[in-house]
Design a protein around this nucleic acid. Structure first.
Lengths: 230, 230
DNA sequence: CGTAGCATTGATGTGGGTCAACGTATGTGG
DNA sequence: CCACATACGTTGACCCACATCAATGCTACG
């Protein structure tokens, strides 16, 4: 690994609590690789040999069953994915596919598990991290069970705009069909839902989304601390 | 705590990896309490003061949003619940309500977190446990997104019968409306779905469910390693 | 034996899926 | 630089799964 990649890895929140010695041992056996868009990093049903941690790019975690596909989440840079499969040494439940050019740190599974055994503080921080993922997934289940597609889209827009660094229109970070899969609907229906939302304070123009009237949008979305991050 | 309750606690898989000293310290500040059916142990939005571990009975974890309600899961005896909220010290995302007379071990949150800090092996086993919960929730999301209600019910029956200790008809362990909430449908629709499943190898009689023809049922359910536990 | 909650059944409405056609971007090679 | 190809997005027509509302049976329990 190159020195600047080492520094980049060290700066990730994942390794915040990790002991320097453990970190160095882990990096000694890890590698960094770049991938074009559309590459499958992990097939569903496969036991992962590596833990992937995204340096740059995005990865879509999705599952297919009898021809229908659903996306679990889009992994942003800086985050690891499918840790749960690795920890339990079980086949992944989702496929991981790059949706743009990406660069990832790859840590051999066995070495990662050794690090957990060796470093109590790291193990603790991972536990908190997994607990946060559990909470995120419970939110997702509630989102899916208790809302219709209009509400899901409206809340997604609100959340995306609150995450954005500055005010003003936000850019859709992937294709619309990906958003549709993420929200649990068909691309056709997403189109219609977008159209039905335009009189309520949002405008979609290509991949640019602008919120005109946040209050009006919030009235449709009815966000809840139970489901959304306030 | 009474000695037999201490022994019962020690036998739980949750504490398998826990050091004896840590265990004793934890139990010294814990208590055991019994509850009738229908008691709310944890309100949604509340930061839990205790970790509950069920000795006997069952607890329903559910969420309500704008008058509609969805169940996340039914906790069986021997298992803890809402650990994720406790680990992250955040408000619970679901309400916990006993669905029958129950008895639970109650461990003060702070003491539980201390045990995690003190005992590396325990922390590691908890991490694996959380990873398993993550996998379960991902399965649940796939189940919800990729299947219709008939398939969900059929798979639920298959899974329930495979969990049952002996062959023969199984008993529905809760009211039908609870099952409906768990499967993400209305009670009315569950009734109809049950009726539509009867020509496919299952018979429902009151709260007793008998599988006549497992292959026929499996043909409707189309179970998948991706969603179900094989 | 009445009452209250739960399960069932029927009638009806609607959200969202499906299928097909058309419009619109993005890139590729002549 | 433009015609063409290919994939993506949009729109419309239609259908079906499921929710909703309302009425009727069940079962249980005081």
């Amino acid at each position: 690994m190159r020195p600047d990649d080492l520094a980049l890895a060290r700066s990730l929140s994942l390794f915040d609590a990790m002991d320097v010695g453990t970190f160095d041992r882990l990096m000694a056996v890890s590698l960094v690789q770049t991938f074009p868009a559309g590459v499958v990093l992990l097939e569903q049903g496969q036991v992962p040999d590596f833990l992937f941690v995204l340096f740059e790019g995005s990865v879509e975690l999705s599952a297919t069953h009898c021809k229908s596909e659903g996306a679990i989440s889009i992994v942003p840079p800086g985050e690891p994915f499918t840790i749960a499969a690795l920890l339990t040494d079980q086949p992944t439940l989702s496929q991981a596919r790059t949706i743009c050019n990406s660069r990832a740190l790859m840590i051999p599974s066995a070495a990662f598990r050794d690090a957990i055994s060796a470093d109590h503080a790291f193990c603790q921080s991972l536990l908190i991290e997994q607990a946060n993922i559990v909470r995120h997934l419970v939110r997702e289940i509630n989102n899916q069970k208790l809302r219709n597609s209009t509400e899901r889209l409206a809340n997604w827009v609100l959340h995306a705009s609150s995450k954005a660094p500055e005010a003003g229109p936000i850019q859709l970070p992937f294709r619309k069909r990906t958003l549709a899969a993420l929200l649990g609907m068909t691309p056709e229906n997403l189109s219609r839902t977008i159209a039905s939302l335009e009189p309520h304070g949002v405008t979609f123009k290509g991949s640019s989304i602008a919120i005109q009237d946040a209050d009006a949008l919030r009235k449709v979305a009815r966000p809840s601390a139970l489901i959304d991050l306030i």
